[in-house]
Amino acid sequence: MVFIIIIISAVLVNNYVLVRFLGLCPFIGVSRRMDTSVGMGMAVIFVMTLASVVTWIIQLLVLSPTEYNLLYQVAHLFWKDAKPSDFNLYPLLRTLLFILAIAALVQFIEMFIKKNSKALYDALGIYLPLITTNCAVLGVTVLNSQVFWANAGEGAPLNLSFLKATVQGFAGGVGFMLAMLLMSGIRERLEMAPIPKALKGAPMAFICTALMALAFGGFAGLVSE
């Protein structure tokens, strides 16, 4: 049940593009045609899910002030009175480690699918480099770390927070793809529509996005937080 709520919340109620304003650059830049927006959406789902997993592990092993922190464990070998709370690196290193992890992850995925799956590389390859600077990916990892980690509390089961983070990453990607697909459908029709010359392209796309966001506003009461 918890997971269903997370999925509905991330796809419809707090859609990453239309409500949270994350990932607007690819949303406007790549949504001109249906097939490219499918490719971009798949790539984002893939990277967002994996990024959620990887950053959760980084937070557990390096950033969090828990006994799982590797730095704490090393220090504990030498000084018996070292405390986990001395190793709260979260505020200091979160941004740096997360963005580096995402950049490395994207690079790694690109190399991996280039070698192993020609079809997948042809479909997603050109979109992968763009994803490093997609703020939806970093956004979902930061949100995960804030929401699920902070609410976990002392002694809460960590594996639940891990699953929640992964599900939120996946659902965020699905929400992004949904918005992209709707937008590309609208824009393919806009090409034929008689609109003022000054509004052609990005301005009209934003105005259509406004209408879409208005429609998505109707989902607002679906999940009570």
């Binding site: 994350l22 963005i99 997609n134 703020c135 949100l143």
Partner: peptide, 8 residues
């Protein structure tokens, strides 16, 4: 969240 997102 938009302060850490200055990075990207």
């Amino acid at each position: 969240i938009f302060i850490p997102l200055i990075v990207v």
